[in-house]
Amino acid sequence: MITRRKLIANTLKGMAALSLPAAAFEILTPDRLNAIIYNDPAKVRYVFLVDTNKCVGCGLCVKACKNENEIPYDANVTRTWVERYIITRDERHEVLEKVFADSPKGARDGFITGQIDLGHGNIYMPKKEDIDKAFFVPKLCNQCDNPACVQVCPVGATYQADDGVVLIDRKWCIGCGYCVMGCPYGVRFFHPVHRVADKCNFCYHRIKKGMKTACVDACPFGARLIGNYKDPDDAVTRIINTKRVGVLKEEFGTRPQVFYLGLSMEVR
């Protein structure tokens, strides 16, 4: 039964609901919110530069990263790793070449022998004269401009900061693994202690204080560099803008922000 009192109350409620603008239901991302509040889009965009010509596969970067970011040392996951590529002639010395690649324990202990790890306990020792070329490629999170991992996180536990770095909220991640499956670069894994998704974040706690990442500091050959792409005078920015650089797996549309000098077509 509708009383007069009820009718008036419901009318008021209805009007209040109608007056709510559609904008009240809009979900703002942190960087859009920042831009609105400070009227100041971020001045920093962290990018990374890897000069594969300088890498010798010593694995000091991997070691430093594991210690700095408390990834259990013996666990078979790592935030950064180094891959070794060995391109040999076929056994029958035909034109076709054979590509071998490995990264045992993420190259934590460095590549100290010529044996190639084929997985499952198998190794292969190519003859020296058969090797056409060999090189190392350090890998880390690409902090993509269009990160697939952020897109697929069902709870928003992984997100992109306004400086471009993709971060993970360890207190909010439910551990579904969708981001792990969504990343085309295989940089994500489950942290064995915290049991949530984990990956390289350019040592966010360091770069925010103006320091370099642990791997950059650990590299004795300057193969790894971090820079700010929004600063045109930055050394890394200048190299990216003036030299021939490549990125990994651009076909996925992720717009990776780790740039490589001396990238070869064999690199996966």
Partner: peptide, 14 residues
Amino acid sequence: IKELFTYPNEYIYW
């Protein structure tokens, strides 16, 4: 069980 060249963090997560 991994065979040949896989990324270090790759496992059958699902």
